[in-house]
Design a protein around this nucleic acid. Structure first.
Length: 291
DNA sequence: AAAACGTGGCT
DNA sequence: TAGCCAAGTTT
C-alpha cells in the first residue's frame, strides 16, 4: 500500500501554507536557517526570528562575521541554543570551504555541525529540488498511518525510516521534493499527533489506518520529558540572564536564579563546557565572544 | 541506544 | 493542571 502522490500534491497546492522559506525567491541559506530553527520548535515561533535573521545575515559569511554572543542573543527564546552555536559554526564552514554557498550534496551537508539525517535531506530537497527521503516526525507519523495502518510511528530508526520513505518517493527530483513537502504539511495540518482531522484528509480513501478502523497505537510509550527543576530548566534561566544583560555579569547575578547551589554550579559549568558561556579574566560570566 | 538538550502553547 | 507536543542532533 502506498500514497497517491498526485492527490497529496494537489492538496498541498491548495491547502499548504505560504511560508517564507517555501517561496521561490528564498535562498538555500534561508532554507537551511529555517530547518535548524524548526527543529523541535513550532512554526509560529520561528517565523519572526527567521525574518530577522535573514535580513541581518543574508549570507553565511555575514553570520560568520558575527560573534557567537550576538547570534545567541538573536536566537532569543527559541530554545536549544546550541543550535544557534552550531549554525554559526556551519555558516563559517560554508563561507570558508564552500564559497559561501550552502552545499546541495547530502553527504557534504551531513558533515556540517548541527545538520543530521533530516536536515541534510530537507535542504537537498527543499533548497535544491533534489530527490531525497525527508523524514521528520510528521512524515514518520503519516507513513505509519497511511501506509502501515498503525496509530502512530514506533521508535525512530534512521535506516528503516529512510528506506520506508525512499520506497514511496516519486521518481523524479522535482516530484519527490514536492511530495516530501506535501507529506510533511499533511502531518502538520491534518494527520496530527493528537486529534487527526481525517475528515479533511486527501488520502482518506487509501489510508491503511482508516481502513483498519483506526486502531490505537500499541507500541512503546514515548518517554515523557520533564522540564521543571531539571538542569535544562536551570541552564535556561542562567542563559536568560546573560542574554538580557549588556556585558559580563558577576556570579552573584547568576546565583539568584536558582536556590540549589550544587545544581546551579553544575549547570553553569556545563554551559561553559558547551561553549554557551565564557568566563572573563576577572571571573565574571558572559555570552561567548562578547567581552 | 538511550538520554540530554529549551521553551511555550494547547488540551 | 499536568502532560503532551513542536520540521532533531549529538554523545
Amino acid at each position: 500500500m502506498s500514497i497517491d502522490a498526485d492527490t497529496l500534491v494537489d492538496w498541498f497546492g491548495t491547502a499548504g501554507r505560504d511560508l517564507p522559506w517555501r517561496r521561490p525567491d528564498c535562498t538555500p541559506w534561508g532554507v537551511l536557517v529555517s530547518e535548524i530553527m524548526l527543529q523541535q520548535t513550532p512554526v509560529a515561533r520561528v517565523l519572526p526570528i527567521w525574518a530577522e535573521w535573514l535580513a541581518r545575515w543574508p549570507r553565511p559569511s555575514a553570520m560568520a562575521a558575527a560573534s557567537q554572543g550576538e547570534v545567541l542573543r538573536a536566537w532569543g527564546r527559541l530554545g536549544y541554543p546550541r543550535r544557534a552555536l552550531r549554525l554559526h559554526a556551519a555558516a563559517g564552514a560554508i563561507a570558508e570551504q564552500h564559497g559561501d554557498q550552502v552545499p546541495s550534496d547530502v553527504d557534504t551537508l551531513l558533515a556540517l555541525p548541527g545538520i543530521g539525517a533530516y536536515t541534510a535531506r530537507a535542504v537537498a530537497a527543499f533548497a535544491y529540488g533534489k530527490r531525497a527521503p525527508v523524514v521528520d516526525t510528521n512524515v514518520r507519523r503519516v507513513v505509519a498511518r497511511a501506509v502501515h495502518g498503525a496509530g502512530d510511528a514506533g521508535p525512530p530508526s534512521t535506516t528503516r525510516d529512510l528506506a520506508d520513505v525512499e520506497a514511496i518517493l516519486p521518481d523524479t527530483d522535482r516530484a519527490a521534493a514536492r511530495f516530501s513537502a506535501a507529506l510533511m504539511e499533511l502531518g502538520a495540518l491534518v494527520c496530527t499527533a493528537r486529534s487527526p482531522r481525517c475528515a479533511d484528509c486527501p488520502l482518506l480513501d487509501g489510508c491503511a489506518w482508516h481502513r483498519a478502523g483506526k486502531p490505537a497505537y500499541t507500541g512503546p510509550a514515548k518517554p515523557v520529558q520533564k522540564y521543571a527543576g531539571t538542569d535544562r530548566h536551570v541552564r535556561g534561566l542562567l542563559l536568560a540572564v546573560l542574554r538580557e544583560t549588556e556585558g559580563p555579569v558577576p556570579k552573584s547575578r547568576l546565583d539568584v536564579v536558582w536556590s540549589q547551589a550544587g545544581q546551579r554550579d553544575r549547570c553553569l559549568d556545563s554551559l561553559l563546557v558547551d561553549g554557551l558561556v565564557e568566563q572573563t579574566a576577572d571571573g565574571r560570566f558572559a555570552l561567548p565572544g562578547e567581552h
